[in-house]
Design a protein around this nucleic acid. Structure first.
Lengths: 144, 144
DNA sequence: TGACAAATGCAACACTCTTGCATATATTAA
DNA sequence: TTAATATATGCAAGAGTGTTGCATTTGTCA
């Protein structure tokens, strides 16, 4: 049985005016198959297994254009690097283990209830969380 | 009138077994006076105005030890660098303008209600937010 | 005041990410 | 099917943040 590809990556790329190169198609498949957001080094090594040797600069450039076009989400997990996630996946938050680095998805949204539930249901011991809003202040909205 | 220093930084440092050097005392004062979390470059330039020329490496080391001892909070605002905030200040979240880079404090805690309120009361247009939890998964709690 | 542990400056380095430029390739129109 | 062109890629250099080793300096405490 062949693994089912849910999205036609070639069409997706053309929709957003990006060329469907082998590296891009393979990268989208890698991200689609991933169970957690991937960093550039990981993407590179997964591509290598598919026989594609992509330069890190190329992967960074891909991630930037995919991110601009909305094909991937940039995920900042308070590390020194960014991770990337396939946009077609439902948006969600992440639960990180500071000890083993495991990353778990969570998808409802009530922060205080959450913390209790996460403790009770998943046994995850929360030490802290990060919540930041990004957007435009009153003043800057006028200027744009 | 002399600016009132709310916390005796020398005593604070001794409490956590850190030596009270001029650079450290000045840095804590700078952070105490700051209205938003500061990055290392900013701390360096503010120290310089106080006549203290500290090496960036020294400031990074200070921030790490202060952070370990709980004197400052490390703030990751999805930039390529970290910021630091005086711990004695009440814990809160931040509101960032993607356009002008202004940073505003916010201190209650209900994410959905928040977004509406922030839009209505402050006129801030939220484009997205980041919410991540950090701690120990069930498995790792056993190991420690 | 003297001894010792800790802090600092400096230089080198690691890591993530970006950029310039020459080359290669996907796409489009003929 | 091919030729023209805009775009993507590889490679090398470089920017920015943060770390580390080591020699020197400086707080602290006896």
């Amino acid at each position: 049985m062949v693994v089912q590809v849910k999205h036609d990556c070639k069409i997706e790329l053309h929709k957003v005016a990006l060329k469907a190169t082998p590296a891009r198609l393979a990268t989208l498949k890698v991200l689609e198959a991933a169970s957690k957001p991937l960093d550039v080094a990981t993407i590179k090594s997964k591509l290598k297994k598919d026989g594609i040797n992509a330069d890190p600069a190329t992967i960074f450039r891909m991630m930037n254009s995919f991110s601009d076009k909305g094909l991937v989400r940039e995920i900042n997990l308070q590390e020194s690097k960014l991770r990337y996630e396939y946009s077609a996946k439902e948006d969600h938050h992440h639960l990180l283990c500071e000890s083993c680095g495991s990353i778990e998805d969570i998808s409802d949204c009530n922060i205080e209830t959450w913390e209790k539930e996460l403790r009770e249901k998943k046994g995850f011991m929360i030490k802290h969380h990060s919540l930041e809003f990004f957007g435009l202040c009153k003043n800057c909205q006028k200027l744009i």
